[in-house]
Design a binder for these strands. Structure first.
Length: 270
DNA sequence: GCGGTATGCCTAA
DNA sequence: TAGGCCTACCGCG
């Protein structure tokens, strides 16, 4: 689940659940130093929760920040308070007035300072899900990059929040081959790429899952797009658009999915 | 119960 | 580029 949409949705939900409260903080698994954050009653005052790309920041009183990165396996379990007993693998547990949160399997869950938080976000490219995002940094880099666009989209220092699923789907919808060098892409295609990425990510935040089919509009409340129909090429054997075979190869240790017929290399590189 | 798989990313060589 | 981290889930038997 964890591409940018998951993280931004978590920030929104958790901010609503806990911001402004003295939250009971613990680490049933013992690998997060909750005792360094809490007062004698086991609680700490949470001011707000913020997302930047795939990074989450829980900002507590006193400029103390819990930095979370879900990695490949990380997952949240959100329940009403009082919640049932924690599973033993729970790295971080937050108990608020109405909701209780458990975090399992994250790559990062650490107590940092506000300066550390700034240093982390400073390393990231613009995030299409943030109001303050400036896509010009992305355009400027791609316009002179020899690197394939398929690699650039996954590079969090160039554009952040995009993962393997959105990469495959954005390139497919724009009919761009993943091996196209950045600088071969027309400016108009780049602008469309940013807008499409932002639109798909926003839809993901609302639907709490990645759906790139059936346009950018949200599914009707009860109309759940079946899993096998939620992407065009990602993890599919046959292209949803042309029904031809989906090709895969490994680029920087990640499997790229694309359709050779819909995304020819020449066409994209004019 | 076991083995394979996954939407990520860091480090060593 | 390969390996490691770390967990849930699913299909198979």
């Amino acid at each position: 689940m964890p591409e940018g949409h998951t993280v931004h949705r978590a920030a929104r939900d958790h901010d609503g659940d806990f911001a402004g409260q003295r939250v009971l903080v613990s680490s049933p698994q013992g690998r997060f130093p909750a005792e360094e954050l809490v007062d004698a009653d086991g609680r700490a005052h949470l001011e707000r929760v913020e997302a930047y790309g795939k990074h989450l920041f829980y900002v507590f009183e006193g400029e103390r920040v819990v930095h979370v990165h879900l990695g490949l396996f990380g997952k949240f379990f959100r329940r009403r308070t009082p919640a049932p007993a924690s599973r033993s693998s729970t790295r971080l547990r937050l108990e608020g007035e109405a909701m209780t949160l458990e975090l399992v399997g994250p790559t990062a869950c650490e107590l940092v300072s506000v300066e550390d938080m700034r240093a982390i976000t400073a390393r990231l490219g613009p995030d299409p899900l943030r109001e303050d995002a400036n896509p010009r940094r992305f355009y400027a880099y791609v316009a002179r990059a020899k690197a394939p666009i398929g690699a650039i989209l996954m590079d969090q220092s160039r554009i952040c929040g995009v993962g393997n699923v959105y990469r495959a789907e954005v390139l497919h919808l724009l009919r761009v081959h993943p091996e196209t060098p950045g600088k071969a892409l027309p400016k108009a295609t780049l602008r469309a790429m940013w807008r499409l990425t932002a639109g798909l990510l926003r839809r993901g935040v609302e639907e709490k899952r990645i759906v790139t089919t059936r346009g950018l509009t949200l599914a009707k409340p009860r109309e759940r797009v079946p899993r096998h129909d939620s992407t065009h090429v990602y993890r599919r054997r046959w292209c949803r658009t042309c029904e031809g075979p989906v090709s895969t190869y490994t680029l920087r240790a990640r499997t790229v999915h694309y359709c050779d017929a819909c995304q020819p290399l020449e066409a994209a590189a004019e």
